[in-house]
Amino acid sequence: MIELDGAVVTAYAPGEGRRGAERVVTLLGPVTATLTERRVAVVGANGSGKSTLARLLNGLTLPSAGSVRVDGLDTARDGAAVRRRVGFLFTDPDAQVVMPTPVEDVALSLRRLGVPARERDARAREALARVGLASRADLPVRALSGGQRQLLALAAVLATEPAVLVCDEPTTLLDLRWRRVVDALLADLPQQVVQVTHDLDAAARADRVLVVDAGRVVHDGAPGPALDAYRALMAVEPA
């Protein structure tokens, strides 16, 4: 269970002009919501604050005011414990994949969990097989396609068996074929999945949709009405 209680995120931004002083801008909030549904989608325009919302959920971004709790753990106080519970999949796998080969990258996740070196290799291969990358386990990461790299990033996150998976536009960089593969894998996960997305088909399959605009949650509910509200919002020209 994820609880947001009046969470606000602010940031320093450079001042205008050459010598303007830095300003504090509000990126998101206040947001109050309790997410218990198995599939939650977050939609919104570019720069609306939906990524910031995703980052709040595993403590990558801390609220400037209010609080965020996952299964009762406060992200500001128990950041490390929260991140063990909440896996995070980024848009760009190149930022997330660290080691030169898939099997080594997944092994790195396991290393952190304290899995002994002897077992790491086998368990890493198992995790790769689950996303269909068994035959690519020893190839250089650069030889994988963008879609395969995203599957690798997913395998490395799932290997740590998180209770919740937060995905920040996991399919935005993928072509239609890979999008289907990733969507199918995400759909079959037993975990709670919170997915930030531009893909309205994916959002329509969620149990609950949050629409974020200009740093605020402007609609929250079942996919049908929420996506209608989002479409109406997007019908206007960008400012």
């Binding site: 602010t10 801008v25 509000t26 971004t61 400037s64 200009a214 400012a239």
Partner: peptide, 23 residues
């Protein structure tokens, strides 16, 4: 603060903070 560099966040449609914006 966000995936985008802060320089971009400034031009994103985030509302300018009121005087009470928390640090």
């Amino acid at each position: 603060p966000d995936a985008v560099p802060v320089a971009d966040a400034a031009v994103a449609p985030s509302h300018a903070a009121p005087a009470t914006a928390p640090a």
